[in-house]
């Protein structure tokens, strides 16, 4: 009976939803600082996982050392992307900057293909493979890692944006670039920081998801699209929206796959994306543009 599988759907929805949430957060952070959509967000995810795979399996570093190193490596990629093509463009034109991120995405993907080849790779789970059975649902230990680490990232980001001066300055830039520049907030530095931060969050997502799926040079594309759909669903640029949009999208996808057919699993994300764009383009938590005249 399909009803008995509900808890299982819920758990797997929450798991992939967490990943989408992290990717959506990455999209949101860069959007808030710059106003652009970073199409290389999925490649950050892929690079994080691939670097982690190399560090643990080729270099042989233990998990606890390799994890932060891989995250730092992708942060460096984000940093290079900003100080290189994005800043060199010397442009405020959104479309130009977005096209640059598309270019960066293709470059990263192809470079990854040459380094790691075309075969999908995977990581061992962080701690064991014995699933926890909870009622009707079997929960893999890795699922707990994913939920826990996502929660930790969300809490840390919340602290950063609401309690620290730099985080508040980033919010200020998102809200009013001119006003922020005029009180001495270096808008360029905030843009740089947003790319570094998004790189780091993307890498975390890639590293924690790889043990339950796999990762290949091109896997970032689909993940980015899902994360993008989640961001739109939650309201593009809203941090709260990104997290809830991600979880909701994961759940809907999982239930959709369970009740209708898993063949359409990916289609659900895009169906939702289209519906949101038709019905409520601002998303669940997005602000409708209201201008006072």
């Amino acid at each position: 009976m399909i009803w008995s599988q509900l808890p299982q759907f819920f758990v797997s929805g929450l798991t992939s939803g967490s990943i989408y949430a992290l990717i959506a957060l990455g999209f949101g952070i860069i959007h808030n600082a710059t106003g652009i959509v970073n199409f290389a967000q999925g490649e950050f995810v892929m690079l994080g996982a691939m670097t982690m795979i190399s560090l643990t399996q080729v270099v042989g570093l233990p998990l606890l050392v390799a994890f932060p190193l891989a995250v730092l490596a992708v942060m460096a990629v984000g940093w290079l992307m900003e100080i290189g093509p994005i800043r060199r463009a010397r442009s405020n034109n959104i479309l130009i900057l977005v096209m640059i991120t598309v270019g960066a995405s293709i470059t990263m993907r192809e470079t990854a293909m040459h380094i790691w080849g075309k075969t999908p790779r995977t990581l061992p789970p962080f701690s064991g493979e014995e699933p926890l059975v909870l009622g009707n649902a079997a929960i893999l230990p890795q699922t707990l890692w994913i939920l826990g680490i996502t929660l930790l990232v969300v809490i840390l980001l919340g602290f950063f944006f609401n309690r620290t001066m730099v985080g508040k300055a980033m919010r200020a830039v998102a809200e009013n670039r001119r006003g922020a520049a005029l009180i001495g907030i270096g808008v360029y530095r905030m843009t740089l920081l947003s790319f570094v931060l998004s790189g780091g969050i993307g890498a975390v997502a890639g590293i924690i998801v790889t043990p339950i799926t796999t990762m290949s040079y091109s896997a970032g594309v689909m993940l980015a699209l899902k994360g993008f759909a989640a961001a739109i669903l939650g309201g593009y640029g809203s941090m709260k929206g990104a997290v809830l949009g991600g979880l909701l999208l994961g759940a809907m996808e999982s239930f959709g796959a369970g009740f209708v057919s898993s063949a359409y699993k990916d289609a659900f994300a895009f169906l939702i994306l289209l519906l949101v764009l038709f019905i409520r383009p601002a998303g669940l938590f997005g602000k409708e543009e209201i201008k006072r005249v």
Partner: peptide
């Protein structure tokens, strides 16, 4: 612009350009 501010030259712009979603205290803090 941010270098000017560090030199002690500040503009109070037309249209105010304050951070609407933040509190008065947060605005001042920034």
């Amino acid at each position: 612009p941010d270098k000017m501010v560090r030199l002690g030259l500040l503009q109070v712009p037309e249209q105010r350009q304050i951070f609407n979603s933040m509190t008065v205290t947060e605005n001042l803090e920034l």
